[in-house]
Write a protein that binds this DNA or RNA. Structure first.
Lengths: 206, 206
DNA sequence: TATTATACTGTATATATATTCAGTATTTAA
DNA sequence: TTAAATACTGAATATATATACAGTATAATA
């Protein structure tokens, strides 16, 4: 799933809201009206971009033939239970049941991309990225990450959440967002690094 | 709800199946094809009967403007649409419709307390509290706040989000969580201060 | 530097679609 | 037994809608 732009996100949200409200998808004109565009082609091009990036599918020649891909069931209300996993300092596999602290019921299109679990954050190493102690980070399991992504990384059974920065072919920097913490430099020749997934959103209850 | 006939039930089922399969409702022609009718008017009359009996609603003049009534979301969790409101620098009442940027479907017990809307944050004045630009703060409308709460406050049509600190009977401090910003001291004798509500949670999409 | 992606306006048009009208036939309620 | 509801075919049509084409402009990328 490629990156989505702000405007494309607005269009995607607009489709979802329209679906929730009416029970059927919007036309190009409906989207224009909702978002203030003056030409139906504005909506059209955004829709084609969203289709190309895999967020929606468009049935050709079909009125309102838009459907949102990724967990979106009958009427966009689909929900699932997502586990909350503690950021265990050391030990057993992340998704092992003994690490599941609790579960949250949440629409599965809640964040822009689908995701697999919530990670409960310990420590303040990502403070300047707005990630505080006990925050729940929505994690999508993947190892396709790019520089600047906030990733969940495992080094020798130790799980951390950090910015990902590939410095060279063999050097990866796990960067903190807090000057009181030290960045972690991994030499892939000597050390093991597993990318568990990346952050696609955050939830905080206070 | 009146009695439904066998054929009307078949049409209703057909709509539901089509919705599950495609994500959008069928046309009259689609229903004909599915059920073997040879005239679109066959579908039309059944649809009108279903509408009259309250099983579906039909948006007049709208392609695929069929929605099934009642059958939408009874799979467990109570949900609601929560508006997302921009942090408008100045102007109109907070919940006025022109300020609603979008809506989010979310279980209404999602945060520990119930809440009324999401506020989209502008600026970084609460950065050290982990509240970043474009974060969505879940706001509960109330004016019962205590020291240390993160509140949504209005001063002369200007809406801000800050820590609440009552210094004395007439002095309230609205404290930032960012040393680059200045705290706001309000003397209630000279100045107006309205507490719109307080933050009970946070949502971030990235 | 050229190219591609994004982000629009504006016009035009083929066709997808709702919807009306004219029939026929059967069943059910008043 | 007369009307009303159900259950269809078939044709006609206004309009709702997708979609192409012609532009303009900006930012990102190679």
């Amino acid at each position: 799933m490629k990156e989505i732009t702000t405007q494309q996100q607005r269009v995607l949200d607009c489709i979802q809201v329209y679906l929730n409200k009416t029970g059927f998808p919007p036309t190009r004109a409906d989207i224009c009206k909702e978002l203030g565009f003056k030409s139906p082609n504005s909506a059209e091009t955004h829709l084609r971009a969203l289709e190309k990036k895999g967020f929606i599918s468009i049935e050709s020649g079909t009125s309102r033939g838009i459907s949102i891909i990724g967990g979106s069931a009958p009427d966009g209300q689909a929900q699932d239970e997502y586990p909350i996993i503690g950021l265990v300092a050391a030990g057993s596999p992340t998704l092992a049941s003994e690490n599941i602290e609790s579960k949250i019921n949440c629409p599965n299109n809640f964040f822009n991309s689908n995701f697999d679990y919530f990670l409960k954050v310990k420590g303040l190493s990502m403070k300047d990225a707005g990630i505080m102690e006990d925050d729940l980070v929505a994690v999508k399991k993947t190892n396709e990450v790019k520089n600047g992504d906030i990733v969940i990384a495992r080094i020798d059974d130790e799980v951390t959440i950090k910015y990902f920065n590939r410095k060279s072919e063999k050097i990866v920097e796990l960067q903190c967002a807090n000057e009181d913490y030290k960045d972690i430099i991994i030499n892939l020749e000597n050390e093991d690094l597993t990318i568990e997934g990346k952050s696609i959103g955050l939830l905080r209850k206070n």
